[in-house]
Amino acid sequence: MVAMGTIVWLSSELMFFAGLFAIYFTIRAVRVDLWAEKTADLNVKFASINTLILVVSSVWCQLGVWKAEHGQSHRTGGLLDIRNWGMREWYVLTYVFGAMFVSGQVWEYANLVKEGTTLSSDVYGSVFYLATGFHALHVTGGLVAFLLIIGRTFTTRHYSHNQAIGAVVTSYYWHFVDVVWIALWATIYLLK
């Protein structure tokens, strides 16, 4: 029930991003000159590495989900005994990688602002910051969700079915945000 509801909600989130993509393509179609000038400032290499970090975080998240589905909320061995890690350890690792991604975004914003592209400088800036900014807000929301899900594992002695469902649907959200970013990255940095 919770899982199905999450998927329906995520499909509506997809339409939210559809709006952002539509804005991007429309304005790009009418301001080809501005795009040629502004996309030269983009650091494609940095953004690609940042994308890779987010994709890898999705892998860690999925490894955590498999642990949650097997009812293993925390590690049974030492900290370096990765094979016996539980959902909690994998989700902390996912959190670290997700936080690295957001920090990378902030660094990139700082560089672009330094080069004179801001939210109100021109229409390219508006579209760029709206699309990537709303995505970054989603990633940040996901990070908060990971903290809450990790926190929930401490409230009971045994890892319950409902706690595991919470972990699974959070991973749905995380994978969704990851896929949206791949589309955004391809649109903004590859197509230019």
């Binding site: 339409m15 559809a18 393509f25």
Partner: peptide, 21 residues
């Protein structure tokens, strides 16, 4: 482009729920 992007992403919306079901 707006209509095309909107409609194709609406396609994904429907297929996403269909696939999950």
């Amino acid at each position: 482009p707006v209509g095309a992007v909107g409609l194709f992403l609406a396609t994904l919306l429907a297929f996403m729920i269909a696939f999950y079901a």
